[in-house]
């Protein structure tokens, strides 16, 4: 059974389709990274999932059932922007959350607050953006949720704490929790997630297991001494999925026979030609770019 199942989700605001027929799932114990440029529909997808917004059409299930107040007994959410009560202290938020959840682990909350160097007596309004995010993370992970929905969970955190968040996600997944999270830090997604979904303009443009997505594609990169020439015949080569040209660099996304394509490029007299494994960043950029350069 999937922990999260979103089927044909559409959400419109007036004439604008914020989310357009999106289907994705997160298996039990899986970690799915939701990627997309700003305004792609990630936060709206999260809001629909959490009943903060009503879908125009489509269905959403968590642990095999529609989302209800009971769902939040085991689902924790960290929003992109701080939604905490600015007049109250970190300790007040911890106490409020403890009272709301039977599973709240006070000891773990204290440990996590120490990890993020949070002063529990400080008012939320006095904290930096990163510290507020850290408070939200502490509260989310201290209830030991089975399902985590994290919208830019490392936003505003310094690199040390970003790593801590990453470790928490990986640790939660290892403990059996299912995670759906968004991030602009593709490196984080690559480390923590085992699958990704890429949104662009509200539509799902790519979805799949990261290893599978990486496995069948290579990058052939040629560097020239002056502006990169047009690849001409290679543009229609069935082995070539996409071509990027930027200054002296010509980059070809190749579905098969990367060595053969590299050899073909030699005819253009480049300074160097290299073949790389595809990174998640390449996959993402490939999915959201507007086409051949």
């Amino acid at each position: 059974m999937n922990a999260i199942e979103i089927a044909n989700l559409t959400k419109t605001y007036g004439a604008q389709r914020a989310v357009d027929d999106v289907s994705l799932s997160v298996p039990d114990g899986g970690v799915c990274g939701l990627l997309g440029p700003n305004g792609a529909g990630k936060s709206t997808t999260f809001k629909c999932l959490l009943t903060l917004a009503r879908p125009t059409s489509g269905t959403i299930e968590v642990a095999g059932a529609p989302v209800s107040p009971k769902t939040f007994e085991y689902l924790a959410y960290v929003p992109e922007t701080s939604a905490l009560f600015s007049k109250y202290t970190v300790a007040d938020h911890i106490e409020a959350t403890r009272r709301a959840y039977g599973t709240f682990d006070v000891k773990r909350a204290a440990e996590l607050a120490a990890t993020f160097k949070l002063d529990s007596k400080k008012r939320i309004g006095k904290l930096s953006k990163g510290q507020r995010t850290a408070v939200a993370i502490v509260l989310a992970f201290a209830i030991r949720p089975r399902v985590l929905v994290l919208d830019e969970p490392a936003s505003g955190l310094d690199p040390m704490f970003q790593r801590a968040v990453l470790d928490l996600i990986i640790d939660a997944s290892a403990g059996g929790a299912s995670v759906l999270f968004s991030s602009h830090q593709i490196g984080q997604v690559e480390r923590a997630a085992d699958s990704i979904a890429v949104l662009k303009g509200g539509k799902l443009v790519l979805r799949g297991d990261i290893d599978t997505l990486k496995g069948d594609e290579k990058i052939v990169e040629a560097i020239f001494s002056s502006d990169a020439p047009s690849p001409n015949g290679l543009a229609n080569d069935p082995r070539v999925r996409r071509i990027e040209r930027s200054g002296r660099i010509l980059r070809l996304h190749v579905a098969s026979d990367a060595a053969g394509v590299a050899n073909a490029l030699q005819s253009l007299a480049p300074k160097t030609v290299d073949v790389f494994d595809l990174s998640l960043e390449d996959i993402f950029l490939g999915a959201v770019s507007d086409g051949v350069a």
Partner: peptide, 16 residues
């Protein structure tokens, strides 16, 4: 409501 993203995702219905 200013903290709705925090307050509305708790195991209690909004009505309650």
């Amino acid at each position: 409501n200013e903290s709705a993203l925090f307050a509305f995702v708790k195991p209690t219905s909004r009505e309650r």
